[in-house]
Structure formats: C-alpha cells, structure tokens
Design a protein around this nucleic acid. Structure first.
Length: 815
RNA sequence: GCCCGGGUGGCGAAAUGGCAGACGCGGGAGACUUAAAAUCUCCUCCCCGCAAGGGGGUGCGGGUUCGAUUCCCGCCCCGGGUACCA
C-alpha cells in the first residue's frame, strides 16, 4: 500500500489535506454546537440511535468505526432531509468484561474505565460523527445507575422481581453465576471453562410473563427479519397439551406437543429434580433412585447437555395409568428430561420421538406405532423413531385411527379434556431473567434484608446505593460478591424499623444497564428523574436503531421487556422502544475474523492519519453491503481516496460561465435519486458507486465541470465525507453548514430518456440492440428489430410469438 | 440435528424475472514527463477466431417461464446462531 505523498514539492494550497480540514471542522462543530439539536423545541425530532460501545482498553475497533459511520450517515441524511437529528453516544462500562480486564492488569476499574472512556472519546471525535456530546452518558456514573436501581424497584413494585434458590450456571474460573445466555456449548462465554451447577439465592425478573406480548409485537415492528426470527426462536413458543397421569394417589402432569400420539405413550419420564420423585419411588427402588439423583445433581451442566451421549435413567418402581389406553405404564427418571422446561416430566412415545426411542431400546421398554404413512404396515415393528407428521394418519389409536396428526391432536385433547385428564396449553422456551451477579463491578441491587421486616427496598430518596471503592475487588469461590467482605458497607439500618440490617451485596446484570439507556439520553441533565416526560414524548420511541446482530436476542429482548413494564407502570406511553431496527454486518480482514491472537486487528487511528477520516469512512461503507459487513483489504482504500481527490479538484476547477451539459445534468438528477434511495435502505456501497459513476461522467475526457454540476454532488457526498463536504461547501461561498443546506431535489422529467436502447432477443438470447423512441409500440419495435441484419438472420419466417416489454426489451420467439 | 445468512471474474462486489459482472482494487497498453511519482485515456469473465462473428458461463442436478444470478424442488460447501425444549 502506498499513501499519497505529502512532500513539500507536491504540497500546495490547492491540494486536499484531510488532517488540517478534519481538525478545523471538528473544532468548528464543537464551538458552534452544530450537532446539538434543541431538545425542547425541535419541530421535527429524529432520534438516531446506535448501540453504545463497551469502552475496552484496546480502544476503538474498526468494527465500531464501521457501525458508527453507518449510523452517522443515516443520521446526517435525515438532517439534510430537514429533520432535527439527535445522535447521542455513551458507554456501557459496567460488567464482567471490564472487571476481568481490570483484574488482569491489576488496575482498579474506577481508574481504568475513565481512562478508557477518554481514549474512546478522542477516537470517536476523530471519526467525525454527528454526535451530541452534551448528552453523553456512562452506565458506571452514579447519576446514571441511580436510575438503573430505580428501574429494579419499579419491577419489584409490579411483582416482577423475585428471589429464588436456583440451579445456576457457575463459572469456576470467573467465579460467578452466568445467565443461560452467557453459557456457550456448556462453557463460559468469556473464558471457555466448563460451567458447573450451583444453588444460590438469586433475583429474577419475570420476563416469561411477557413472552406472548414480546412475540406478538414482532408482527408489526419494523426490524430486520433475521433479528425477528432470532427472537421468535429464543422465545420458543410451543403449542400442545398438559396431560395428567394418575400414579396411586398422586398425579403427574406432562407437557407434550404431540397429544395425538398418546396411545403410543408406553412409559413416563421425570426429571431427576422433579418434586414427586421421592414420593412415588417404591421402597425397593429407593437406593437406585437416590444414587441416580445425587449423581445428576453433582454433574455439571456441560456433561448433562451433551445430546450425543448414551441415555441414562432408572426405574422408580411406580406405575402410571395412561388415560387413553387405560394401561399401567412404568415411571422412570432420566437426566434427558429437564426440570426447567414444560412440567419437568414427559410421556415417552418411543415410536415417534428419537430420544424416547433410544431410551426405550436401551432399557427394553415397549415401542408402539401409532402413526403411519401411506403404505406403511401398522403392525410391523419400528426400527427407528418415525417422526413425520405431514401426510400421515393415526393407527393403533382406537376410534381415532385414520385421523391426520392435526385432527388427531384436536380430537384427542378434546376427549381427554372431557375426561378431566388434559388441557390444551402453550409453553415457552424463554426463562426468567436472572439478574444477580456475585461480582463487584456493577450497580448494587437496592434492597436491604432485615431479620424482622424481611426484604426491604432502599427508599428512592436514598438512591443511588453507591458502589464503594474497595481495594480488593477480586471474587473468590465463596459464591458471594466481594462486597460481602465489607461489613462497614453492607451493615445499614433497616429503612422500615431502624434495626441493623444487611444490604444485598450482589450487583445487577450489565444487561439491565443497557436495557434503558436510550431513555436517558434526552434527559441527562435532569438529576431528579430518570427521563423527563416532555422530552420523552418529543423524542421517543427511537426512530432508527442500528447495532450488531450479536445482540439480536438478549439486549433487544430485555430492552423491549423493560419498556413494556415501564409502559404498564404508566411511565411511558409506548411499549416498543425502537420503531426501526437494522443489524449491521461484521468487518473481517482478508477473509478472516479479526482477533488479537491472529494479529490482524486494525487500529483506526493509523488509517485516519494516513488517509483521513473521510476516506476511511467512505471506504468502510464501500466494502460491501452495510447489513452484511465486508472484507477489509488494504488495496481498496486508494480508489476511494482518488474519488475524494477528484471531488476536491472539481470544486477548485469548476467554471460558472456558460451552461451546464444537458446529459451530465440528466445523469446528476438520476444520481440524486439513487443516492437518496440507497441511503434510506442503508445500501451505502451502491450509493457510493453511483456517485463515482457520476464523477466519471462529470470529468470524462478531461472536461471542466460546470458549477451547477458540482454543487449538488458535494451535498450527496456530505453524509459520507462530512469534513471534506463542509470545507468545499465553505469554499463555494456558503456561510452555513452543508448539513443545513437541505438534500438536493431531483427533477422527475430529467429521469427518463427520450430515446432508449431496446434489447432485442431471439429465443431469449440477445442478438442486438436498437435505438428507438421511448414510447415506441410493439409493431414498430419489431420492424426496427428485424431491420437489424444481426437479428434478422436468426429469424426465418413468421415469429411464433413476440414478447414486448415497453422501454426495455423485445423477445422474438421462433420455433 | 434444527434455524438464519451466503456461494457470481485474479480480488471486494452490482444486478430481485428482462443486456450477468455496474462501481472499485489489481493487471495491461498509451498520453504527459529528461525520468519517476501523481494525473489522464483506452483495454481487462472464459474458449474458438486476424477480424466480423460464434460458443460457454452466476456451487451441483432437476423444474417453471418466451426469458432464471433472481422463483420452485432435491443436493453440496462456507459463515453465524442454537441444541436432549418433549
């Protein structure tokens, strides 16, 4: 790669010097508050939100620059369209990621984080974003997390926060509880250590109460389809039935999505943790069952969740009555049945479920066929689970024989309901949100435990519960937060009775910090309320939200949940926070993912110095489709710089005398339309290509462009290369910011050509092109086409058929 | 396994039923220059052909259509997510 030479010979007043220009305009924007809209009076508010970054010690990543630039271009475009755009930024600086790094380098996070943030600010400013820095926030600021704690209390007030002793994922290396989401293939997502099971008293949010609403709203919000699908899968709605099986005096409820197969249910399986296990186990089986239960409890979740492993399980000695067949079937326990899903018990239908089939084969349990396809012998033994459900019928199911799966479900559930043995029901895969973290670097959960009064909220007037500075913030394997080692901090009077009590020493999940930050941005200057009602009414919900797809489930789901709760508590008048969400792609480098270990991480500073922020911005957007990401290769950047150089030269050389060229102007109007349309749908790479194409027309054959041909191009380029555009705009004699100049309009009449090139095909193969008037009709087009010798020679005699697409193409079909 | 993406020149990529390869990189030839850089102009999917022209071509195999990179069916490969979820 060669950078443009900056030697003294080439250097003159007329050459494009991004370093000087970018510094000048960044200072100017700051001095004039160019990027701060009037939050109280803006007539056309437009909230352009970007997922805020985690301020890592490594500094801004090229992927951040890519994402922020894509967001900024959309925001700047909206401003040019006449909107009052609010583009805030902040830092998601709490959490295990920061804390682990602080532990590694041995610097306290309270010193480290401000340093990192300062570095991020410096780098972000250099990118030239239209950020309103006067509304910056950090989740670690007590003025911010005061309200994170307040939100916790709002959930508590609505009965949506509860404590339970739960089997949690425990990372023995990070020494903390992980959410299910932070466990990747049974291992900690941060350090890769296999996760173990531990039982701790935890705070949970009842997000499952909102499962259906979270699902239903997906039908109307304007989000990337991929993100919506990911959320639907995560919520995991299953329709089925809860069927009750009698076991002596007890009843075992199972959840099934295939009630139609109940005649093939030849045994039941309970999760080892199921509360009825000890009740129903017979004396002779007690020893075996207890041993199995104990073994499962000790087993870590990794080992348990490996699908491929041999099925294990033991017989309880008890029998249940199948309500459909009336037969007694054995009750087993096995670790392939999970207590967290459904009812923690299943009816096993080995003939039509792969897992049940494996289990039945291993333990010699009966396998009965109750579903058969066309031509299948209903009495022949099955050699594998038959799971087809389309185009099949029920067999060996008494009076339900011959029904389809759908009809069978309906009729069998109906029948069992009248017998009082079942009811139709819906189950979700989504679990409640575990909030507690036994760590230091987070907002303390604002509750106090009093021996007499029980769980007490910290009164709102006492918020924030400030996270104290403690030297020793390293977690140990006691399972409690490092704060629990500081009696001077956790011993406080009970807010109710005044007796000495104990603070909660756990802190809350980082995802709670980020679940409401967009509400805070417009209201950062208010310290007596989390978000101002009038400001919120003016600016929210967010008009456009852009972020990475790695947050497609967790962050976006939690954010929607918190918004719904605040809506229900009448703090907000909307329940969906983001009208429009689009996920950006990932930047890779020379075909590989960037990582420190590979040594292929790109430091944006270096590129900004070498090429200028405008060139880097435009190049990143030119790499590939914004929503797919792209491959960063050194080679390509020079082409973008050349384009900007040519724009610079065009402004310096342009003439004002005479008339602009008609065909160039026509091309200009087409380009204005295309660039606007493309930016609107985030197709930045093609918008840039269109501008380059126009540039080629503008400067073809070394012609000197006319002022009228150049001025709008500077406006089109401005969202991509804002500093350069401002500089050129000023040099062209304007005294307002180019961003207040309005998006150029295009002339509809200029978009269509009077004469077009009609493509002529014979049997679908292109055989020629003819220049014809745009409005030509079919017969005239045909005779024009046949007058071309290159076409005529393929047409012998009368055409069998002629397809005419006006303005485009003529296809002559001969046999 | 399941669910999402994706597979097009030497490379990044365009084209959403109508001229495949826009735009850019790289490469080639030329202009300017004492020379180089920069800049500018032209060429650049593959095969046959001096040319005119012809043939082939968007992961593979089928299908629908006057016409398919695009729609449908069946596979293969790559990336991401998810996983005893009953």
């Amino acid at each position: 790669m060669t950078a443009p030479k900056q030697d003294s010979v080439a250097q003159n007043e007329a050459s494009y010097d991004p370093t000087a220009i970018e510094r000048k305009w960044q200072e100017r924007w700051k001095a004039h508050s160019t990027n701060s809209p009037d939050l109280d009076r803006a007539p056309k508010p437009f909230y352009q939100l970007m997922m805020f970054p985690y301020p890592s010690a490594e500094g801004l990543h090229i992927g951040n620059v890519f994402a922020f630039t894509g967001n900024d271009i959309h925001g700047r475009f909206q401003r040019l369209k006449g909107n009052n755009v609010f583009e805030p930024i902040g830092f998601d600086a709490f959490g295990i990621h920061s804390e682990n790094y602080a532990l590694k380098v041995g610097i306290h996070p309270m010193e480290l984080i401000p340093r990192n943030i300062e570095n991020f600010r410096r780098q972000l400013r250099r990118v030239g974003l239209m950020v309103d820095w006067s509304h910056e926030l950090s989740t670690t600021d007590p003025d911010y997390y005061k309200w994170t704690q307040w939100i916790f209390l709002q959930l508590m007030n609505r009965g949506l926060a509860y404590r339970k002793k739960a089997a949690v994922n425990w990372c023995p290396s990070c020494k903390t509880v992980l959410s299910n989401e932070q466990v990747v293939n049974g291992a900690c997502e941060r350090c890769g250590t296999p996760v173990e099971q531990r039982f701790l008293e935890q705070w949970f949010f009842r997000i499952t109460d909102y499962a259906q609403r979270l699902l239903d709203d997906l039908d109307w919000i304007d989000w990337s389809e991929t993100t919506k699908t990911a959320q639907r899968n995560w919520i995991g709605r299953s329709e089925g039935a809860e069927v009750r099986f009698r076991v002596g005096d007890e009843e075992i409820a199972v959840f099934t999505t295939r009630p139609d197969t109940i005649f093939g249910a030849t045994y039941l399986v309970l999760a080892p943790e199921h509360p009825l296990v000890s009740t129903i186990t017979t004396r002779s089986q007690r020893g075996t069952v207890d041993a199995y239960v104990t073994r499962t409890a000790k087993q870590d979740l990794v080992a348990r969740k490996v699908t491929e492993k041999e099925k294990t399980g033991v017989f309880t000695g008890a029998y249940a009555k199948n309500p459909a067949t009336g037969k007694d079937i054995p009750v087993w326990i096995a670790d392939y049945v999970l207590m967290e899903y459904g009812t923690g018990a299943i009816m096993a239908v080995p003939g039509h479920d792969e897992r049940d089939f494996q289990f039945a084969e291993k333990f010699g349990l009966p396998i009965v066929r109750v579903v058969a396809g066309e031509g299948d012998d209903a009495s022949a033994p099955l050699t594998e689970a038959y799971t087809a459900s389309e185009g099949v019928r029920l067999v060996n199911s008494g009076r339900f024989d011959g029904l389809s799966v759908e009809e069978g479900k309906r009729q069998i559930v109906g029948w069992l309901e009248t017998e009082g043995a079942a009811k139709g029901t819906v189950t979700y895969r989504l679990h409640d949100w575990a909030i507690s973290r036994q760590r230091y670097w987070g907002p303390p959960i604002p509750v106090i435990y009093c021996d007499d009064c029980g769980v007490q909220q910290v009164p709102e007037k006492d918020l924030p519960v400030v996270l104290p500075y403690v030297e020793d913030f390293r977690p140990d394997d006691s399972g409690v937060s490092p704060l629990a080692r500081h009696e001077e901090w956790y011993r406080v009077p009970c807010p109710e009775c005044g007796k000495m009590a104990r603070r909660e020493t756990d802190v809350s999940d980082t995802f709670l910090d980020s679940a409401w930050y967009f509400l805070r941005y417009p209201s950062t200057e208010f310290d007596d309320r989390p978000f101002d009602a009038a400001r919120t009414r003016r600016w929210l919900p967010v008009n456009s939200y852009i972020g990475g797809n790695e947050h497609a489930v967790l962050h976006l789901l939690y954010t929607r949940f918190v918004t719904m709760v605040l809506h229900d508590a009448r703090h907000l008048d909307f329940e969906e926070p983001f009208r429009k969400f689009r996920a950006h792609g990932l930047i890779i480098r020379e075909g590989a993912k960037m990582s420190k270990t590979k040594g292929n991480v790109i430091n944006p500073d270096e590129y900004i110095e070498r090429w200028g922020a405008d060139t880097l911005r435009t190049y990143l957007m030119f790499l590939g489709p914004f929503e797919e990401g792209g491959d960063y290769r050194e080679a390509g950047i020079s082409g973008v710089r050349r384009f900007l150089d040519r724009l610079w030269a065009s402004v310096l050389e342009m003439r004002s005398d005479g008339a602009p060229d008609a065909s160039v102007m026509r091309k200009l109007h087409q380009t204005i339309r295309k660039v606007g349309d493309d930016i609107e749908r985030l197709s930045y790479n093609t918008a840039i290509a269109a501008m380059m194409e126009y540039m080629n027309a503008l400067r073809s054959n070394e012609r000197t462009p006319h002022r009228a041909e150049v001025v709008p191009l500077v406006q089109l380029v401005s969202p991509f290369a804002p500093h350069l555009a401002e500089e050129l705009w000023e040099r062209m004699g304007h005294d307002v910011s180019v961003f207040d100049s309005g998006w150029p309009a295009y002339d509809e009449s200029q978009l269509v050509e009077d004469e077009i090139e009609l493509v002529v095909q014979v049997n679908g193969k292109v055989r020629g092109r003819v220049r014809v008037p745009r409005e030509i009709d079919r017969d005239a087009a045909l005779s024009a086409a046949l007058s071309e010798p290159g076409v005529a020679k393929f047409v012998n005699g009368e055409p069998a058929k002629v397809i005419f697409v006006p303005g485009r193409l003529l296809n002559i079909v001969v046999k």
